[in-house]
Computed example of a mutant assay.
Amino acid sequence: MKLEEQLLERSNKKCELCQSGDSLQVYEVPPQSYSDPENCIMICGKCHTQIDRKAELESMHWRFLPEVMWSEIPGVQVVSWRMLNRLRAESWAMESLDMMYLNDETLAWAKATGDHDNDATVSLHRDSNGAQLFNGDTVILTKSLDVKGSTLNAKLGTVVKNIRLVEDNTEQIEGKIEGQVIVILTKYLRRQNG
C-alpha cells in the first residue's frame, strides 16, 4: 500500500491536525531521510501554507492543538510542538506547551529544524502597498527602472504578467519585460486587481 493511501486510511480522509477534508496532501515532517507513516502526516492546504510560512499564522485556526498534541503519531506530535512554540505569545499555547510531553528522540526531532525558535511572523512577498503577491500575478511598475546589464528601460506603468516569486528573497520577483526575464524589487510594483 502506498504511503498516501496508508495516511488517508489512518486519517479517515481528514487533516490529521484540524480535521478538514479540503485539499489533503502528504506532509513529510522535516528533517527526514526516508518517508514512512511515523514521520509523515496528512494535512489540509490551510495548515500546510501556515506551517510552511506561505500565509499569515491565524491563531484561531490552531485552537485544536491542545487536543491533537496528545496524538500517538510522532509526526503529529512534532508539528504540534513546533506550532505551539510559534504561537507561544498566546496564553492557551503556552499552557499547552507546559503540559506537553515528548520523549527524548521525538523532542530532538522537533528541535532539529530550529523552527521552534521563531515566532509567528511570516515573511511574504508584498507589493509597495502591502498586498500579498502570488506566482502568476499581474503587477504594474510604480517607478521607471533601468535594467542592469541591459539597454532596457522599464517605464512607470509597465504591466508585467505572470510573475514568479523569488523563493529565498521576499523583496524580489521575476517578470518578463519586452521578452527579457528580469528581477524586480517588490517595492517598485503594485499588484493589479482582478
Results as ranks from 00 to 15, higher is better:
residue 91 S to Y: 12
residue 68 V to C: 01
residue 46 K to L: 13
residue 124 L to E: 12
residue 45 G to Q: 05
residue 117 D to T: 10
residue 69 M to A: 14
residue 105 E to L: 09
residue 118 N to K: 12
residue 98 D to E: 13
residue 86 R to Y: 04
residue 94 M to D: 03
residue 125 H to G: 13
residue 119 D to F: 05
residue 78 V to E: 03
residue 73 I to W: 01
residue 52 D to A: 15
residue 64 F to D: 11
residue 82 R to Q: 12
residue 74 P to T: 00
residue 121 T to N: 12
residue 73 I to K: 05
residue 75 G to W: 06
residue 85 N to R: 09
residue 106 T to D: 07
residue 124 L to N: 14
residue 75 G to K: 02
residue 84 L to N: 00
residue 61 H to M: 13
residue 110 A to G: 08
residue 72 E to M: 03
residue 113 T to K: 04
residue 88 R to C: 11
residue 113 T to P: 05
residue 113 T to L: 05
residue 90 E to V: 11
residue 52 D to Y: 10
residue 48 H to Q: 14
residue 56 E to C: 15
residue 101 Y to A: 03
residue 123 S to E: 11
residue 110 A to P: 06
residue 111 K to A: 04
residue 117 D to L: 08
residue 118 N to L: 12
residue 86 R to F: 01
residue 99 M to S: 11
residue 53 R to A: 15
residue 49 T to V: 13
residue 45 G to R: 12
residue 97 L to E: 02
residue 109 W to P: 04
residue 108 A to H: 07
residue 106 T to V: 08
residue 88 R to K: 15
residue 106 T to M: 01
residue 84 L to D: 00
residue 65 L to R: 00
residue 50 Q to R: 09
residue 49 T to E: 15
residue 54 K to P: 09
residue 78 V to P: 10
residue 84 L to T: 00
residue 121 T to M: 14
residue 77 Q to H: 12
residue 104 D to H: 06
residue 119 D to W: 03
residue 82 R to Y: 05
residue 53 R to F: 15
residue 81 W to T: 04
residue 74 P to H: 01
residue 47 C to N: 06
residue 78 V to I: 15
residue 125 H to Q: 13
residue 85 N to T: 04
residue 126 R to W: 10
residue 97 L to K: 01
residue 124 L to D: 11
residue 88 R to F: 05
residue 89 A to Y: 10
residue 121 T to P: 05
residue 46 K to M: 13
residue 81 W to H: 13
residue 108 A to F: 07
residue 51 I to D: 10
residue 102 L to I: 03
residue 64 F to Q: 12
residue 85 N to G: 07
residue 69 M to R: 14
residue 76 V to M: 02
residue 101 Y to K: 08
residue 59 S to W: 01
residue 116 H to K: 06
residue 66 P to C: 02
residue 51 I to S: 08
residue 111 K to M: 07
residue 78 V to K: 03
residue 115 D to R: 10
residue 93 A to L: 03
residue 77 Q to E: 13
residue 112 A to G: 08
residue 111 K to T: 00
residue 53 R to S: 15
residue 53 R to N: 15
residue 97 L to Y: 01
residue 66 P to I: 01
residue 97 L to P: 05
residue 56 E to V: 15
residue 72 E to P: 02
residue 89 A to I: 07
